[in-house]
Each structure stands twice: as C-alpha cells, then as structure tokens.
C-alpha cells in the first residue's frame, strides 16, 4: 500500500484527531527490542513510527538521542539492519507509516538510489534527513521521489517566509516544525508561540504540520495538539528506554503507559 502517510493524516483529520508520532532509535539496544518497542507503541496508540538511523555524530540531537545512537552502534546496528527491521515490522503491520530519521552520511555511503530502492522495498514511507536542507537535497530528493518515498523537511522558528516557500516546493507527507531553538529533548516548548507560528504556516503550507523537539509530557502534547496536526515525541521515550536497559519487560510496560497517556491527552484536547 502506497501513501500510508497521506492516508493516515486524512483518516485522522476526518475524525478530528491529532496524529501521535513516536520516535525510537533502531537497535537501541538491539533490533529485537526495537521491534517490540514499535509493536508496543502502536498498540498503545501511536499513529506513525519514526525510526532513528543511528549516526556517530548526531549534531542536531541532544545527549539523550546521542547516547541511544551510541548504544545502537555498539550493538552493531547498521543502515542495512534498520531496513531489515522495517521489513520485519511490515510483515505484521501494513498500515502504520514508518519515517526513517537520520543524517546524510550513512545514506550517502550506501548511495541514494540503492538506499531509496531498499527502503521502499522494505516498506518505509518517508525519510527525514536532518542535515539536508532543500538547498543540498536535489540528488537525494530525486532518488527518494523516484521510489515513492516522501522526503520530510524541518521548519524552524528561524525559518523566513522565503525559506518556508522553498521548503514547501519539495516537502512531501508532512512538515516537521522544530518547536525550540536547540537540539532534541533539551528545552521545554512555549506552546503559545507554537500555536501562533502554526497559524502563520497554515497560510503557506498545504501539508499537515507536525511539532517536535521539546515536547516531554502529556500536558504539553495536549496544548500542541490544539493547533498542530501531529505531535512528535522522541527524547522522552528514549529516556524511558535508557532507564530500563536490561529489563525489557518493564521497559515495554513503561512505554505502553506513557504512549497511552499521550494518546489520551491528544484525544481529550481535541474533544474539548
């Protein structure tokens, strides 16, 4: 099935629901645990899975996700391994969109065309290359598009109108609004500012708007859900994974209850 992302947002919007996007670094601490985490997230109410491709130098991420990357690489995770994980998940779930999130260099090392071909065959739906602004994305964007993959782009509090227009021209799936000036998981967002920026973006952007970087609790997720089309949670989940290293069963329980609390918060915010 193609265009899972578009289908997902259309279905949610029809029911006035905000999408819950949950992030996990592939291979932290092993592929097997990550697959179980993905299952747990979906069961507890996640709509979209963002799967992190570990990189040795994750410059846009905070310490929490950097440590997750280090654990994953230590455990032997590779880009091939990430794609194998996607394929495994797809054997049992054909609906939930998967976004691969990572950095340029591992994709370039594999080759854009080969990566796009394999990622599409494995069942991925979108790719967010953190360090690829539109200016540097021509070649990779062509390859992704040719294989039916949506390239997801970031917009930020510092993006000018001209930049947002430029991003609109190439973005597919949804756009990811970086709600804080900073790296992942370090600062709390200012939800009032977020909602006023989102109103501005709506005038320019035909795509759904997801909000991430700095949403740590069901309360702030609920506030963002009033204006955003999707709420993206990463570091807060990785902290749970980190806290329960070596005890996978209690980790899955903790993830399930956190994701469920987010789901409930989003649904209540929209119902109010």
């Amino acid at each position: 099935m193609k265009n899972r992302i578009q289908h997902c947002f259309t279905a949610l919007q029809a029911r006035n629901r905000c999408a819950l996007v949950t992030y996990v670094t592939a291979g932290d601490p092993s592929a097997e645990v990550t697959l179980n985490i993905m299952r747990t997230m979906v069961k507890a109410g996640a709509d979209i899975i963002e799967l992190g491709v570990p990189f040795s130098d994750p410059m846009a991420d905070g310490p929490v996700i950097q440590r997750a990357s280090e654990r994953a690489l230590q455990g032997g995770m590779s880009l091939q391994g990430v794609l194998a994980l996607v394929a495994k998940f797809r054997l049992e779930n054909s609906l939930v969109p998967i976004i691969l999130m990572g950095y340029f260099n591992p994709l370039e090392a594999m080759g854009y065309k080969k990566f796009s071909e394999l990622a599409s065959a494995a069942g991925a739906d979108g790719v967010l290359v953190v360090d690829a602004p539109p200016e540097e994305s021509n070649d990779i964007n062509q390859a992704l598009t040719a294989y039916g993959l949506d390239q997801i782009f970031l917009i930020s509090p510092t993006s000018t109108r001209a930049r947002i227009e430029r991003i609109c021209a190439v973005a597919r799936g949804f756009v990811y609004y970086v709600a804080v000036k900073g790296v992942t998981g370090t600062k709390d967002i200012d939800t009032d500012e977020v909602s006023s920026r989102i109103q501005e973006f709506r005038q320019m952007l035909p795509l759904p708007i997801g909000v991430g970087f700095g949403i740590k609790s069901p309360e702030s997720a609920a506030e963002v859900a009033v204006s955003g089309d999707a709420v993206i949670i990463g570091s807060a989940l990785i902290e749970i994974i980190e806290r329960h290293q070596g005890q996978p069963e209690t980790m899955y329980d903790a993830i399930a209850s956190f994701v469920k609390s987010l789901r409930d918060a989003l649904d209540e915010a929209r119902a109010a």
């Binding site: 410059m59 602004p133 000018t160 930049r163 970086v178 900073g182």
Partner: peptide
C-alpha cells in the same frame, strides 16, 4: 551547508 533547518537562518 549540510545543517538542520534551525541553523540555516
């Protein structure tokens, strides 16, 4: 300029 959008501005 291979950086996240946050740094482009």
């Amino acid at each position: 300029k291979f950086v996240a959008e946050t740094l482009m501005g």
